[in-house]
Design a protein around this nucleic acid. Structure first.
Lengths: 376, 376
DNA sequence: ACGTGATCTGACAACGTTGTCCAGACCGCT
DNA sequence: AGCGGTCTGGACAACGTTGTCAGATCACGT
């Protein structure tokens, strides 16, 4: 029959073709160890070395009771002498649970999402789980690819900041028992746990703040309207204006990409009133990237003489050190991540009730830029 | 390698109602679950449903040749009807390779490390691998715990930003074939691939810049001296001073925690010359957290009358919008991460030569704060 | 001496996948 | 019809771990 367990086909390959990832290291390991099969030591090897049974090694490794201290010592010695480390893949296969959770978000390096990710990691750690994460780059297809790859690895749970608006592809996974929680944006065409900031109310409050300081013509520059948060914030802007009885000119509302050229162009248009509409005296910006671009535009020398008020959605580092310091509607991304992870582990601990939605409040932080009076 | 996992992902769902009633699919799952053991369907289940052999299903799932198109169709139908997804744990166990890499760093949410992490993820993705990452919180024990947990999961490779100064615990893992690359700081008591910024040269250049603008009394506030980068930057500071023939008073050198109270206290001490030493006219700060704290301290109203120059190690967002804009010695964290990941996959592709060290240059970015002349 | 538990230990069968190997079926050719 | 070859398809044994269960061993009370 097959060559004995000692060797899994190793047709000597001195000129390694690039492509076989494990081949090189495996070959190296083979040269080095020369033991039974070219891999790492297994419990079987440890058992042989210690002169005990396989299961006894398993018991020692897992700290189970029922092993005499003498046997345990022998096994421990064999373990350290062989450099054994349990193969968790096999364990996972046997136990059916991976003690790991997946996180799919837009961009791990975004200062808004990185604390969120860290918070999820922290909660996972507290539950003895590892975190696997991937960035979707706001690409629905990539989100799906990532999420399904994580499911194939049998993560116990999934935290998702959606880039797509249709998550029916997850239905079989959820049905099969993968706990799933959405954060920051709701899932599409599927029911699941959800953690959101109160985007509508936050935006309403921020715009009302500008109105309270005397502004009547306020520009809104936001993210692409397909994104849930962008939509909600725009809704909040309109609500605040309506509540104050103020009209909203079409020219004052500019959703779109967060590309800085786009944002600057729209801002300039609103400030200069090029299209016959009266110029705005204040901006409400839909997220931190837009805010930063606006700060740059407003700080330009040619804009200095006519100060424009600004309230931004999302806090950011050093906002308090700019001149003027930037007034923001702050979310707490770490709190969002923590809440989502806690919801997730609640499911993993067996909660089986209806999907729930958690809404987290935002906080208006007045620092200066939002309290500038209208210049007209 | 994992790319084909997504092939099976397409749920092409003719039988599902467009309305996507989750209850419906759940019920379907329950019916299905009534099968063997209430778990997820396996290839065996698919084989039974399609009326083919187990291996044939495997072939279809992996896109292997040698399956007639009719059989393939039957198998695909069974797959979607059962909601089957390959169990990668079993695959990993069988194949011995996980197509995943681990990343251990200090803090995923740190604006310096998050682009690094993202860059590693991007390279991993290009090689079809997932990224598992963990934050060590600058705790050596936690670093070890994390790194070994990742090894137990048989990640193919490991990228580490060390928190510890002794990595002998990794020797058995590396010997067993886990490719390992260190970034930002060198490994301790072990040889391995390494990617570093040229901290010494960067600091020397930054301090020389201040000297060139007329400063003779320059304070250094840095990170804890146990950290390699902190040590190197301090060495660069001393070298620049020595090259200019300038003495360095003990009171001007303050390594320590990045805690803002500590930093402010040391800064205040140096500025006021409380201990008989002449006050400094400029600061060189050892990292971005220190820089930000210094900016805050120098911007305090009572300091306004005597401008102090500042050059910081590490760039940070909005540095150009502060007043004055902050001159920095910039590293490129994404570049560090990318280089490290490339080194890693070079190993995974079979490279078996001596460990190599890659040094990346830094760039001085003059923005204003470093060009302020001495005020005495 | 003899059960009688209590304690310790190991054989064995999963877990779900993939690699090996062999057996038919079917083809075109002599 | 016989022969060699190419396609298909499936049986079976790994991969390394853990759960089950039953066998050994031992101390102890009768």
């Amino acid at each position: 029959m097959t060559a004995d367990a000692s060797d899994t086909a190793d047709p000597a390959r001195p000129p390694l073709p690039a492509g076989a990832a494990p081949a090189g290291s495996r070959a190296a390991a083979a040269r080095r160890g020369g033991r039974r099969h070219a891999g790492r030591p297994t419990m079987k090897d440890v058992a042989a070395q210690a002169g005990v049974g396989l299961k006894t090694v398993s018991r020692v490794v897992n700290g189970e009771a029922g092993v005499s201290s003498d046997t345990e010592r022998r096994v421990q010695e064999a373990i350290t002498s062989l450099g054994f480390r349990r193969n968790d893949s096999a364990r996972v296969l046997r136990k059916g649970t991976t003690a790991s959770v997946g996180l799919v978000l837009e961009d791990l390096a975004d200062p808004f999402y990185s604390p969120l990710s860290r918070a999820v990691e922290e909660v996972a750690r507290a539950h003895g789980a590892l975190l696997i994460n991937g960035s979707s780059a706001e690409d629905p297809e990539r989100e799906q690819e990532l999420a399904l790859a994580l499911c194939a690895r049998r993560v116990d749970g999934l935290v998702i900041v959606p880039a797509s608006d249709d998550h029916r592809y997850l239905a079989p996974e959820i049905a099969a028992g993968v706990a799933t929680v959405f954060v920051d944006r709701p899932p599409g065409r599927i029911a699941a746990d959800l953690v959101l900031s109160d985007n509508f109310e936050g935006a309403r409050t921020g715009v009302a703040h500008l109105i309270a300081h005397g502004h009547r013509r306020i520009g809104f520059i936001g993210d692409r309207p397909g994104i849930h948060t962008a939509k909600e914030r725009l809704r909040g802007y309109r609500a605040a204006m309506a509540e104050a009885g103020l009209p909203v000119a079409d020219a004052w509302v500019a959703p779109g990409s967060t590309d800085s050229d786009r944002v600057r162009a729209d801002a300039a248009r609103m400030l200069d009133g090029t299209d016959g509409t009266e110029p705005v005296t204040a901006f409400f910006s839909g997220n931190n990237r837009v805010t930063v671009t606006l700060v740059r535009e407003l700080a330009a020398p040619e804009r200095r003489d006519r100060p424009v008020a600004l309230v931004g959605f999302d806090d950011f580092e050093l906002a308090d050190l700019l001149s003027p310091p930037v007034t923001v509607v702050a979310q707490d991304p770490a709190d969002l991540g923590r809440s989502a992870a806690e919801l997730l582990f609640r499911r993993l601990d067996g909660a089986d009730d209806e999907p729930r939605t958690v809404s987290r409040p935002t906080a208006l932080i007045a620092r200066g830029s939002g309290e500038i009076p209208p210049g007209d």
